[in-house]
């Protein structure tokens, strides 16, 4: 069952989510190419809007898939621990894949030719606050991870709606990602920091300062990561309470 559960989970993510996002990018690239060849403006959305649209649709789909997989695994007798582990590992993979797809799309769209850093959208003002392009790229990546985490949380919560689960297990499952994902990222940054030279260490320190809205050279940015963390925590907490209330209404006996 172990192998099958992994197979089922990733297969659904690939077939129904990543392929879906890839298909949408493909569609918009085709329109882009047709527009380039024919010379008439067929495009309804610019490259940045396409990226945003695909991202939002993909996130919503991910929430539905997470909910369905959570309940399906319970029917199949898969232990909650493994289900939880699989769901949260997909946060990382989904972030990498979507980030990669968007970067690729931005690079090959005929009128685009823009690096990922230019796909800033509402985060445009933050770009100036970071010294190095990679810092802003990493910042965007973290934003991706947070957004995807929000959708996974919702999916997991609604999955648990059907299970009348123990509240400790549910709480652990719902908030597990807040420990795992930041833990992994902090571990990776810590490893780089430990081995880096003095200049790089200064850059990393400056980057980390900016993540929490502080700057060594007087530039101040809104501490977006912290704000988002709080928003996600509140959102999932409210959803969890909502879930608990609904559970009590499920037919018993």
């Amino acid at each position: 069952m172990t192998k099958t559960s992994w197979q089922f989970h990733w297969r659904r993510l690939f077939l129904e989510n990543y392929n879906y996002a890839l298909g949408l990018f493909g569609l918009w690239l085709s329109i882009d190419l047709l527009d380039y060849v024919v010379g008439i403006n067929l495009r309804l959305l610019d490259v940045k809007s396409v990226c945003s649209a695909v991202l939002y649709v993909s996130m919503a789909d991910l929430a539905i898939l997470t909910k369905e997989n959570t309940t399906f695994f319970l029917q199949m007798g898969i232990p909650r621990r493994r289900s939880w582990f699989m769901q949260w590992l997909s946060v990382l993979l989904s972030t990498f894949l979507l980030d990669g797809m968007i970067t690729l799309y931005l690079k090959i769209a005929t009128r685009g030719q823009v690096p990922i850093n230019n796909f800033a959208g509402i985060f445009k003002s933050y770009r100036a606050a970071f010294n190095q392009p990679w810092q802003f790229g990493l910042f965007l990546f973290l934003m991706f991870a947070f957004f995807i985490m929000v959708m996974l949380l919702l999916g997991f919560i609604f999955g648990l709606l059907l299970t009348q689960t123990n509240w400790i297990v549910a709480l652990f499952s719902v908030y597990g990602g807040f420990v795992t994902v930041p833990g992994l990222i902090a571990g990776a940054i810590g490893l780089v920091y430990w081995q880096a030279n003095t200049t790089t260490k200064q850059h990393i320190t400056a980057f980390l300062y900016r993540l929490i809205g502080r700057s060594t050279d007087g530039v101040r940015a809104w501490p977006l990561l912290i704000t988002l963390s709080v928003v996600v925590a509140i959102l999932s907490g409210v959803s969890y309470l909502f879930a608990r209330r609904l559970q009590a209404k499920i037919r018993k006996g």
């Binding site: 319970l74 007798g77 232990p79 009348q164 689960t165 018993k252």
Partner: peptide
């Protein structure tokens, strides 16, 4: 139903 759900690991 609750009893069956407990046996089948859907509720605790």
């Amino acid at each position: 139903s609750t009893l069956l759900r407990i046996i089948n690991n859907r509720a605790f």
